[in-house]
């Protein structure tokens, strides 16, 4: 399980340091300048400090709510429907080779 149980409110301060912000930026694939890292670290620290108040709410045994309806999934019948030719989904491509999307070499 990737999502382990850590409660940041138990640590002294929710302040995000620049290196954490840099890691999150890498995970998000966002190239940020030093100044951006700095300001985001500061702004998000403020925001998270404010959000610490959530810890006051007792949520023991409460099932998380993902969607605000009680509806359940409707399934689609297994039928093929063609809508547009391949070209329609390639014409916005920044680079292509024939009908394939062209990208830098994939590692691995």
């Amino acid at each position: 399980m990737a999502n382990s149980k850590t409660d940041p409110s138990s640590s002294a301060s929710p302040r995000l340091d620049k290196s954490t912000v840099a890691k999150v930026a890498e995970l998000s694939r966002l190239k940020l300048s030093d100044a951006e890292l700095e300001s985001i670290a500061q702004q998000l620290s403020m925001v998270l400090a404010n959000f610490e108040q959530l810890a006051q709410v007792n949520t023991q045994g409460v099932e998380p709510m993902v969607t605000p309806t009680d509806l359940t999934l409707r399934l689609r019948e297994d039928r093929v429907e063609r809508r547009e030719p391949a070209e329609a989904f390639l014409e916005n491509a920044p680079d292509r080779s024939g009908n394939l999307f062209k990208v830098p070499p994939v590692v691995g």
């Binding site: 999502n3 149980k5 850590t6 940041p8 959000f51 949520t59 409460v62 998380p64 709510m65």
Partner: peptide, 15 residues
């Protein structure tokens, strides 16, 4: 951080 942020928020959302 999932439990303390996303999950916690989704629980309070139900409340």
């Amino acid at each position: 951080y999932y439990d303390a942020y996303y999950q916690k928020a989704s629980q309070v959302r139900r409340l």
